[in-house]
Structures are given as structure tokens and as C-alpha cells.
Amino acid sequence: MIECQKVKKVYNLGTSKEVVALEEATFYIPKGSFTLLVGPSGSGKSTLLALIGALTRPTSGKVVVDGEIVSKLPEDFASLYRREKVGFIFQKFHLLEELSVLENVVIPLIPTSSPTIYKKAQEVLKRFSIDHKAKSKVRKLSGGEQQRVAIARSLINDPKLLLADEPTANLDKRLTLEFIEILKELKGEGKTILLATHDPRFLELDFIDKILEVKEGYVIS
């Protein structure tokens, strides 16, 4: 599913502020697997997620996702790739606070201007039992509810790949456990999941297929 070949990322290349964020990394993540990305913050986990999600391009090397070379895509194609294949869950959820739950969830589908997007959104909300709050503003929800909205939004385009960046950093224990349950369920549906975290609790999970450790830019399988 995800194949990285000698992927290296240097920020501000060719300027005086050059920073090496990721040294040549080579690894493979099979389809339908659950992979953990661990390491201290600032070690290059986010860069790796950004490269796999085609939010940026590598300085050298190649990233192939689902048979598509995503490391060499013009920006608009990268967006298209994300829209069609990737679901993102961010550390701070990154929901638009002034919008309603429903409006937040449809965002990834608005550019498709398909007439069924609100129907789809309702379905996803129902699945995570947050549909009763569809009209409320995100700002007024509790942390747990916000998280479920974020998950619903990441799944509305039915992605093959789910990328999560420190999704539980702001959650208490109960909500983290709830989140883990959902992950398990999603893995059961055959989604490929890549989760970056420094929360040691994840290491104990029984359905982990692979652990990638990132340390000062180096990836160790």
C-alpha cells in the first residue's frame, strides 16, 4: 500500500536555513495494516505523514501509495489524491469552530459539487452517533464529541488510507480508549491506518502490525 524508497526531506533547500527533517527512509506498509509511528516530538514523524499525505514533496526519493507515485505530484493533483484516498485526523482536530458539525463534515466533498454530500455526511455522523448534534456549532461541543466529528470528517470520502497525527494528545484516558475501539473497527473494515504518537499506551495494543520508530530523522523498523 505505502512504499517509501530512500525518501529524504530537507526544508529550505538551497538557502541558509537548510534543515534536514528526514534522512533517507525506506520501508513498506502493507494494505489493511495498522502501523504505529513513534518517537519524540520534532523527530520527523509529522514530516513523514506530510510526505505520505502529499502535503509536501520529498527532496529526493519516491513515495508510492496505492500504486500512485505521490511524491511527484503538482499541488492540485496532490489535493485530488488526498480527496480521493486519504483521511486525516489532526492533533488538535482542526475543525472550523464557527461552523456546524454537518458543515464541518462535508468540507472534503464540497469541491466535488455532488448533490449527495449532505446525505453522506448524515450517514457518517450517524455511525459515530453524533447525528443529534448535526446543527450545533463545533465550538459548543465537548472534547469527545469534537473528536468524533473529526473522525467522521476524515471518513466521509471513504478513504483507503487514514493518517492520524497525535490524535489522542488532548484526550483523557476514557476517550483514548474509545478512540482505540474505533480504530480497531476501522482496521476490521480493511482500512490502512498510520498513526503517529508518543503515547506509550498504544504500544500495548494487540492489533498492531508494524511499528516504525523515528529518531532525529532516521526511521527504524
Binding site: G14, T15, R57, P58, T59, S60, E75
Partner: peptide, 11 residues
Amino acid sequence: KDTPLQYYLER
């Protein structure tokens, strides 16, 4: 290329 200039030009 992966330089800031290249990103700038694309934009």
C-alpha cells in the same frame, strides 16, 4: 527540484 524557489514558481 525541491527548493523554495521551485515551490514559489509553481504557485
